[in-house]
Computed example of a mutant assay.
Amino acid sequence: MKIKFKVSILSLCLMASSLAYADPHWTYEGKTSPEHWGELDKKWETCHTGSNQSPINIDHTIKGKLDNLAIDFHVTNETIVNNGHTIQVTTSDGDDVTIDNVKYSLKQFHFHSPSENHINGQAFPVEIHFVHANDDNQLAVVAVMVKEGKANPVIDEILKDIPAQIDKEEKIEQPFNFSKLFPTDKHYYRYSGSLTTPPCTEGVTWFVMKEPVEMSKQQITQFQEALKHSNNRPLQALNGRLIVE
């Protein structure tokens, strides 16, 4: 089934990027927390009324004999920003992933701590969201869970480039190898969901990798300190959706 968004790729990326909104302001705590997002702006009502919202607990899956994700890794220059909601890396010539014989290009990726999606009731210390769009303006998010383990050299490169000032975008001078942010095993869970930040737009195809990658305890702590607060939306009701593996 093909779901089309009649909006520009730029608009989609801005929505999915967790960029700071000047008016209204939203947060993960207090009176502007996820429980109140749908009240803050009429355009955000889907955050409360939507029936295919993300994140979810991935459980009771059905077998679909899904092919491994075909990811074509490039080496590009990127920019990085701490926008107050997440640490985000924007790509200029993104890596491609092929889904249902259609090529999607990576627009940006960002970090949540703790994880937003759960797998069989388990949360992870960090979850990375790789936001892709195709030529028809369809969105796909590839989610990679992170567990504590060995230090990841790519994460070291990202951590050292995080700007100290909120909303100050900096260029990452040294291109890095994206493949180190993905597990070797490319099997995944697939479901239909939404953006996890306002306006919570639905029609987003989610691919949650089964195998996590590793970061050291120190790297995880550094991310949490840079974020200064948890940035995970609570789990949403499945509402009869199928999760395929």
Rank of each mutant, 00 (worst) to 15 (best):
P175R: 02
T46L: 09
V102W: 00
F73K: 10
S33Y: 02
D185S: 11
P199N: 04
W26V: 01
H36P: 01
E148M: 08
S11M: 07
H74G: 05
N82Y: 04
D156Q: 02
L69H: 03
N82A: 08
V81C: 06
F207T: 03
S17Q: 02
E173Q: 10
F178S: 08
G50Y: 10
I128Y: 11
P183R: 08
T196G: 13
M215H: 10
H118F: 14
W44F: 11
R190N: 11
Q108R: 00
I155K: 05
P175H: 05
Y104S: 04
K171A: 15
H129V: 07
V144P: 06
K168M: 11
N120M: 10
T197Q: 12
H60V: 06
V89N: 01
L181Y: 12
G193P: 07
A70K: 15
I166Y: 06
N57K: 04
M1L: 13
I3H: 14
V131R: 12
S216H: 07
Q165F: 04
L238T: 14
L14V: 09
L12W: 04
K228F: 06
P198D: 09
M215N: 08
N82L: 09
D167S: 12
E169L: 06
T90C: 06
L69T: 00
V89K: 02
F109A: 02
S115R: 00
S192E: 14
D96E: 14
E169M: 11
P34T: 07
F5C: 13
M1I: 10
T46R: 08
M145V: 00
S192G: 10
V142A: 08
F111M: 06
Q224K: 15
I172F: 03
K103F: 01
L10Q: 12
K43H: 10
F223N: 03
L69R: 02
I128L: 15
I243R: 14
K168Y: 11
S17V: 01
L139V: 15
P183T: 11
P153T: 09
K147V: 11
M15C: 05
T205A: 13
N101E: 10
D93Q: 13
F124C: 07
H112L: 01
E214S: 14
K43T: 03
V7S: 12
P34D: 06
N152R: 07
T197C: 14
T27F: 02
Y104L: 02
F5T: 13
Q218R: 09
D135S: 15
H187Y: 04
A151P: 08
K168G: 01
R233H: 06
H85V: 01
Q224T: 03
E39H: 08
Q218E: 15
H129I: 03
